[in-house]
Amino acid sequence: MKIVVAIKQVPERDAPIHIASNGKWIEDGDLNYTINEPDAYALEEALQLKEKTGTGEVVVVSAGPERVQSTLREALAKGADRAIHVEAVDLSSRDTLGVAQVLADAIKAESPDLILTGLQSDDLGLGQTGVVLAELLGIPHATIIMQVEPVDGGLKVKRELEDGWFQHVEMPLPALLTIQSGGNKLRYATLMGIKKAKTKEMKTVTASPAAGTPAIALERVYLPEKQKKTEMLTGSPAEVATKIVEKLKFEVRVL
């Protein structure tokens, strides 16, 4: 099975939040970047599928500026066979459809049996790129997937529903799945893997310019207002503990 995994590079979770001067994103001068968490699970699922079937290829694709190559390189170190960097410096001015189109262009040429994406990105949180990509490629999809099992004529996947429910869905290939975090245990790159990754193919293709204007526009970003008035308790750990106990006794009344 030939599997393409779409990987997004995102700021680390503890990134400092300072709003950029254009008011549309955070200052990115000294951000550290990492793989989007569910994408790491998508990669893991792809690698396990390849191992299970004993044949096939895992190709990782990421669209973005040059820095995304480091994340692709890490995916190669974990065991992906090849990487495609879709070079685009203007992703933030494209909408979901625009980003999915860029990915579709790069992936179509590969004609994979299976495409895996994360279910949602940690930074934009759209939860859409995978589904839009499937629609653009004209292939079936399933979302929020925990497990993938190859069966005759296609796949059987375990889809998460709300409130702790699940369901199985069967579908033919080629197909696209958006992968949920937590379905597998993630592997680490071995020293050997890191060494090997240096010799693996990393192809760069240039994204075609955005076709038309985006359907939606981000106008500005800002820190959220608090929904509740939070009373901050300060002091040494012991002082804070005493203050909490007082609240538990006299305000919350659980002691």
Binding site: T234, A238, V240, V245
Partner: peptide
């Protein structure tokens, strides 16, 4: 963002605060 829905908030290291809080709760009880 948890602080947006919190009535009381403590900004600090849980490894320092939680053991102290356990002691304080035990003492109060």
């Amino acid at each position: 963002p948890i602080f947006e829905v919190a009535d009381y908030g403590v900004v600090g290291d849980l490894f320092e605060i939680v053991p102290e809080l356990t002691k304080a709760v035990q003492a109060a009880k």
